[in-house]
Design a protein around this nucleic acid. Structure first.
Lengths: 224, 224
DNA sequence: GGGGAAATGTGAAAATAATAACATATTTTT
DNA sequence: AAAAATATGTTATTATTTTCACATTTCCCC
């Protein structure tokens, strides 16, 4: 079987695998489709597979000292639990689908073979990990320093520009989850969204958001 | 020359290098001693070397939208700029010595040769990166959810237990830097330290801190 | 389409921390 | 050792956000 060989959602790393490695991966890999709300990785459980998000949208989240926190939103294609798989034995965070997602479970020992034997593959993985780490620093600085309106503006722009490529989109998170993403209470998110609406920056119809004044939103995001 | 071979502060990765690789590294490596306050890596500059902290204590910090933020405190032995070196061309954060530090600058192309040719070496690096990423998530969750007293308590314990292995130590950061580490203002740090002192939890003599009631500090750190 | 559950909106009060303004202490320089 | 510069402490005021309480809306399931 050559499922992986002809997969259109290869990771940059797996593009470095040769045909025999790809067919080995195909044989040691299972794909699964998750619906919105399904838990893909559960915090605290043993991480026994490498998990690759082919298509879809997920949230990485972990329980903090006071409440749940969404670490980040990730879209396919991307590896989901590499740090947990290689950094420790168990999952340090959960991953939940926030839109229908197609996921591949790759056998860990097979994957480890590639890491041990194919330096180009490993090099690409390393680069992905490095980019993630830089990204996590930037995200942390941003979320701790911005206040509610700034964080909310930033994430509305993120959904519009990076995820949906449209100024009109349906929020994949409810108000409480947005709060967990930007470190604010459900109520503050609600209030701030209303303010944006009242000031003509966005239009809200339940979960549907339309960005009207993007420039203004950018200013608020950068902080003013 | 076999400086690296007989180095007592090898990284876990470089323990996987063979003798010829180690001597190649020795020839393409320069060591330098930094005094407290010296900048080792400058945010925005091109990252042209792999930088390895053999001994000492440093802060990783970056400029946020509002003010400087200390991302984390790192002690040797540890690689310092791997994410910047492999994740991008320039440094995304600065690194400054907060105590005298001994640092090795390793030629990037030499290092890259090891990565490409020695899978065990690269595997160890990957694990270090994974652990760092997990750690950065935990740290971010903690710093965003805890309030000033909790964050301060956590970091006092960190200095006592992880860095100095003593309940009596000299703070390597001033009040403003502590603020940048726990996301609080200089004044709040000062106030909270005074409170801890007044309640008999710690003793303060300028930068010298003595932890008196560690159990209490732990409770405050976990947050209650 | 109705009924219940879940999610959202909104106002007022309370909590937390920032800011401002200034006093005091410590360190560095000369 | 004196002077200047830097760092720290302290209080009152202000700003931001949370919490609480409850109204309203939307969603979902039979």
């Amino acid at each position: 079987m050559d499922i992986c060989k002809f997969c259109h959602h290869k990771s940059k790393a797996s593009e470095k695998l040769n045909d025999s490695e790809l067919s080995l991966q195909s044989e040691n890999c299972a794909e699964y489709r998750f619906k919105k709300g399904d838990i893909i990785i559960r915090q605290g459980a043993l991480s026994s597979n490498v998990i690759f998000l082919r298509e879809g949208l997920v949230k990485l989240h972990m329980t903090g000292p006071l409440h749940e926190q969404i670490i980040k939103i990730t879209y396919g294609p991307a590896y989901l639990g590499l740090p947990s798989t290689f950094g420790d034995k168990y999952n340090h965070y959960s991953v939940t689908a926030i839109e229908e997602s197609l996921v591949c479970f790759i056998d860990l020992s097979t994957f480890r073979t590639f890491v041990k034997n194919n330096p180009d593959f490993t090099y690409q993985l390393m680069i992905e990990l490095c980019v993630n780490e830089l990204d996590s620093y930037h995200r942390c600085v941003s979320r701790t320093q911005k206040q509610v309106s700034g964080g909310l503006a930033e994430n509305l722009l993120f959904f519009a520009d990076t995820i949906y490529h449209s100024n009109k989109f349906e929020l994949p998170l409810n108000r409480e989850e947005i709060g967990n993403l930007i470190d604010a209470s459900r109520e503050s998110v609600s209030r701030t969204l209303s303010n944006f609406h009242d000031e003509g920056i966005i239009k809200i119809e339940n979960k549907k958001i339309t960005i009207i004044d993007k420039e203004r939103l950018r200013l608020i995001s950068q902080y003013g």
